[in-house]
């Protein structure tokens, strides 16, 4: 079946549906209408930019350019992770979390794109950019949950952490329960969506493929693969994010550098 192209004016009509939620939000004085306006404009502009950029990227289909684009996406995700985790943009956090996310994404990309799908051209844009984007978006969400949970819990329960140190624990041993809880919190949403996928919701990637004419069977194979990639990528990047940043946010006496927290 051919895909029905969406004209710009049809898309414009689509925006009209926002009148309903905007009226509800206004009626109940939620104060969210301004936010809704900004979010809608941002979403539209960002996606327009990405759409045009991707057209250009797909046309060139250069592995180096694609890798550079991944770097830019990871860099934006790095700042967003730290801001949304309510931590300060310090070098001791920015560099390790960037390295963790980048490494996590590269491992997942190389494994799935090159070893599983076996792309005919290395890091082909058509596959690399969307798959990386999906994994990275989920990594960002999990990193925010995991990194925020880890550092704020350590901050809140400092006495417990120090008690462990005074019981002979190394720093790694003393942070272990906080690390475990952060991993659990960050992995749970993805596990929950894996357990209900297909029953409660049809995932975006699969829907997109079906809409663009793929057979549902091809779509589910890709969807299963992307779920595996998302789960592995998120756990790996949260693990590395905490592990690497841990090396830079403690003083020599194992005291956590409190200046990482937003006041």
């Amino acid at each position: 079946m051919d895909i029905i192209d969406l004209s710009w004016w049809q898309l414009g009509i689509g925006f009209l549906i926002l009148i309903i939620p905007a009226w509800i939000l206004w009626r109940y004085k939620t104060g969210l209408n301004k936010k809704l306006g900004i979010a809608t404009v941002r979403m539209t502009l960002q996606l327009l930019f990405v759409g045009y950029y991707l057209e250009y990227l797909f046309e060139l289909d250069n592995a180096w350019l694609n890798a550079a684009w991944i770097m830019v996406m990871v860099l934006v995700a790095d700042f967003a992770t730290i801001d949304r985790s309510e931590l300060n943009r310090k070098k001791s956090l920015l560099i390790p979390i960037f390295a963790a996310t980048f490494f996590g994404i590269i491992v997942i990309d190389l494994f799935f794109l090159e070893a599983v799908i076996q792309l005919p051209t290395f890091l082909s844009a058509q596959y690399t950019i969307p798959i990386t984007g999906m994994v990275l978006g989920n990594c960002l969400r999990s990193n925010v949950i995991g990194i925020n949970a880890f550092y704020y819990s350590l901050h809140e329960h400092q006495e417990r952490y120090r008690f462990y140190l005074c019981c002979g624990a190394t720093r790694n041993e003393a942070v272990f329960p906080f690390f475990r809880d952060a991993l659990k919190k960050s992995a749970n949403p993805t596990l929950a969506s894996m357990a209900t996928i297909g029953l409660v919701s049809l995932p975006g990637m699969m829907t997109g493929q079906i809409l663009s004419g793929s057979s549902p069977l091809i779509a589910i194979k890709y969807q299963i693969m992307i779920m595996l990639a998302i789960f592995s990528g998120t756990v790996l990047s949260v693990y590395l994010g905490i592990k690497l940043s841990n090396r830079f946010v403690f003083f020599e006496n194992d005291v956590l550098d409190e200046s990482i927290f937003v006041d």
Partner: peptide, 24 residues
Amino acid sequence: PQDLNLGSGNTSELADFIFEFHHN
């Protein structure tokens, strides 16, 4: 500490965690 908080779990597991430190 005055008000010891060892997190969630049963007492035996939480105490064992401390005795499992390499040094202990």
